[in-house]
Amino acid sequence: MLILTLISVAAAALLLAYSLVLRRELGRMTAQLRRHNQRTTGKKLEVTLFDKRLEALADQINCQSDLIVEAEANRRRTENELRQAIANISHDIRTPLTSIFGYIQLLEVEPITPEEKHEYLYIVKNRTKRLQALLNDFFELSLIESADYQLKAERIVMTVLLSDTLVGFYDPFNEAGLTPDIRLPKEPVAIYADESAVRRVIENLLMNTIKHAAGQVTICFGQRETTAELRITNETRDLSELDVRLLFDRFYTVDRTRSAQGSGLGLSIAKSLMNKMNGTLTAELQENKLTMVCRWPLWLQGEAYPHYR
């Protein structure tokens, strides 16, 4: 009986000691978390007491802290992108509007010849078209990035679609003094994707190439292990790694003066459409050669059709 009593007393003492140590450890963790939340330290929670459950709790708190930090960084980045986008679209809208208003004033006030009137109207018409294209692109990008925007998956023979699209760009390439080196496989390569979205992606990439290519253009398409891959490579001047990282941002243009006719939304639209189709669109810069790479997942016979989000 005495032995049982002594064992009980020892167990109670051990339990009390463990409770005191656990209480002290919880207090220390609370103080660490408070300093972290007050931004006085960036250290993660550390546990000195060997207890698997306590360590698991600290790990989960640290994971939650990481998620909060990531969410905050994403929020700041989104706010910066929004401010920059607002500044850019304000500039891109104000510029043609100012020009249109100025030429309308000339038409109203100045005694002008029929030739001058024709020239002014031509300029106003072009500025209006540019403004309309900008607003259409902005609306389209907003629509594509909305959760309600749906794409339809269907079987597309990419070799046929690419050939058809490239024929339509013969005149623009010729006018730009470019003769692209086109390499398509002899055997048909098929994917399941939204045809209009795929065509829009290719058209936007080709238009971007025509605007900015400084030399040889190479267009390659082929089948990899699990993907269909389109690579458009062109020589470029004055393009940095920073420019390449920002190419797909809304309203970003390499032209710092924003004097080019583009809206800066074409590549953003292409990127968003590729994401919707579970594909990828990336840019690579090597030795003054810019390569746009599109990858679509191949649909293999017997597999279920892909479902787009």
Score class of each variant (00 low, 15 high):
residue 152 K to I: 11
residue 166 L to A: 06
residue 139 F to N: 14
residue 125 K to V: 11
residue 94 R to D: 05
residue 135 L to R: 01
residue 64 Q to T: 15
residue 119 E to F: 14
residue 48 T to A: 15
residue 68 I to S: 09
residue 147 A to K: 12
residue 90 S to V: 05
residue 84 Q to R: 03
residue 135 L to T: 04
residue 35 R to Q: 12
residue 167 V to M: 06
residue 132 Q to K: 12
residue 146 S to K: 05
residue 131 L to W: 00
residue 132 Q to P: 10
residue 151 L to H: 03
residue 162 L to Q: 01
residue 40 T to N: 13
residue 76 R to S: 07
residue 169 F to E: 02
residue 68 I to V: 10
residue 39 R to S: 13
residue 42 G to A: 07
residue 134 L to A: 00
residue 43 K to R: 10
residue 93 I to W: 04
residue 128 T to F: 01
residue 62 N to P: 01
residue 58 A to S: 09
residue 89 I to C: 05
residue 135 L to S: 03
residue 83 R to P: 05
residue 84 Q to M: 10
residue 125 K to P: 01
residue 66 D to T: 06
residue 128 T to G: 01
residue 140 E to T: 08
residue 114 P to F: 05
residue 92 D to L: 14
residue 40 T to Y: 07
residue 155 R to Y: 01
residue 95 T to I: 09
residue 68 I to T: 08
residue 112 I to N: 09
residue 161 L to F: 09
residue 58 A to G: 01
residue 154 E to G: 11
residue 63 C to M: 15
residue 131 L to T: 03
residue 52 K to A: 11
residue 72 E to V: 04
residue 110 E to N: 13
residue 166 L to M: 09
residue 115 E to N: 14
residue 80 N to D: 14
residue 118 H to S: 14
residue 72 E to A: 09
residue 100 I to S: 03
residue 93 I to Q: 04
residue 170 Y to H: 11
residue 94 R to K: 15
residue 170 Y to Q: 13
residue 60 Q to M: 04
residue 98 T to C: 01
residue 151 L to Q: 05
residue 57 L to G: 08
residue 98 T to E: 11
residue 43 K to A: 07
residue 44 K to H: 13
residue 63 C to F: 15
residue 82 L to D: 14
residue 85 A to W: 15
residue 71 A to P: 09
residue 136 N to V: 10
residue 140 E to L: 09
residue 53 R to W: 13
residue 57 L to M: 15
residue 65 S to W: 11
residue 134 L to W: 01
residue 131 L to V: 11
residue 72 E to R: 12
residue 91 H to D: 08
residue 42 G to W: 00
residue 80 N to H: 12
residue 127 R to Y: 00
residue 162 L to M: 01
residue 115 E to C: 04
residue 111 P to Y: 06
residue 55 E to L: 06
residue 157 V to F: 10
residue 122 Y to L: 13
residue 119 E to S: 14
residue 124 V to S: 03
residue 148 D to G: 08
residue 146 S to V: 04
residue 53 R to I: 03
residue 67 L to K: 11
residue 78 T to Q: 12
residue 97 L to N: 07
residue 75 R to V: 06
residue 121 L to T: 14
residue 153 A to I: 00
residue 88 N to D: 13
residue 125 K to I: 03
residue 49 L to V: 05
residue 145 E to L: 10
residue 127 R to T: 05
residue 80 N to C: 08
residue 82 L to M: 10
residue 162 L to Y: 02
residue 109 V to T: 13
residue 44 K to R: 13
residue 162 L to H: 04
residue 70 E to A: 14
residue 107 L to M: 07
residue 167 V to H: 03
residue 41 T to C: 04
residue 166 L to Q: 15
residue 127 R to D: 01
residue 77 R to P: 15
residue 170 Y to K: 15
residue 72 E to P: 03
residue 123 I to K: 01
residue 145 E to Y: 02
residue 104 I to D: 02
residue 137 D to A: 02
residue 132 Q to Y: 09
residue 119 E to G: 15
residue 48 T to Q: 15
residue 150 Q to F: 05
residue 148 D to H: 13
residue 77 R to L: 13
residue 44 K to Q: 04
residue 117 K to E: 02
residue 35 R to D: 06
residue 34 R to K: 10
residue 35 R to F: 02
residue 141 L to V: 06
residue 35 R to Y: 03
residue 70 E to L: 06
residue 125 K to E: 14
residue 163 S to L: 05
residue 161 L to C: 05
residue 57 L to S: 11
residue 83 R to S: 10
residue 72 E to S: 09
residue 89 I to L: 00
